[in-house]
């Protein structure tokens, strides 16, 4: 069988390149909290999670997408958009997002978390609930990859 050497080398190079950088596939420690906005009387969802860059030399820029919160029946409850300007190597980019909930969304989330919305205290700092990994899914929309040396050189020059 005749093998085109150039194609083989390009393919090997691509494989090597893709093997060199790892794209985050999951989020760390997702947690949510529902608060009652005193001024408007609406419910607010505070979402926090981390995205780890496990690469030693790759910077992710404009890392954006959605985090979907799904119930135990795999039904989507809410989708939370996020954007992280930069995630440096070995670092964990922190997603901190606030979403104003519609009444139906607030009801669904309260059912899912098993909390009574009528008992929410606007002043309370308590009530953060950590979510199970099976109740969260990450949908990456886009990002840019850059070598750390190039990235740092731009900052210094």
């Amino acid at each position: 069988m005749k093998v085109n050497l150039y194609k083989y080398l390009i393919f090997s190079g691509l494989l090597l390149f893709t093997a060199c950088s790892k794209t985050p596939e999951s989020i760390l420690s997702p947690s949510i909290k529902i608060q009652l906005d005193k001024a408007t009387g609406s419910y607010i969802l505070l979402f926090t999670a981390g995205i780890k860059n496990e690469n030693d030399s790759v910077v992710f820029s404009n890392f954006n997408g959605k985090v979907k919160i799904i119930d135990n029946n795999k039904r989507q409850i809410i989708s939370i958009p996020f954007e992280l300007p930069v995630i440096l190597p070995f670092e964990t980019g922190i997603i901190k997002n606030t979403v104003t909930l519609s009444e139906s969304e607030a009801n669904e989330i309260s059912k899912f978390l098993n909390i009574d919305l009528n008992l929410l205290n606007p002043e309370s700092e308590e009530g953060t609930k950590f979510l199970d990994d099976s109740n969260v899914s990450l949908e990456i929309k886009g990002f840019e990859k850059e070598d750390i040396i190039k990235f740092l050189k731009k900052k210094v020059n």
């Binding site: 440096l88 190597p89 070995f90 750390i148 990235f151 740092l152 900052k155």
Partner: peptide, 15 residues
């Protein structure tokens, strides 16, 4: 060394 890299990357990235 890893912690030093994380620290200096952060310092330079944030000018």
């Amino acid at each position: 060394v890893k912690n030093s890299l994380r620290y200096f990357d952060f310092v330079i990235a944030n000018d």
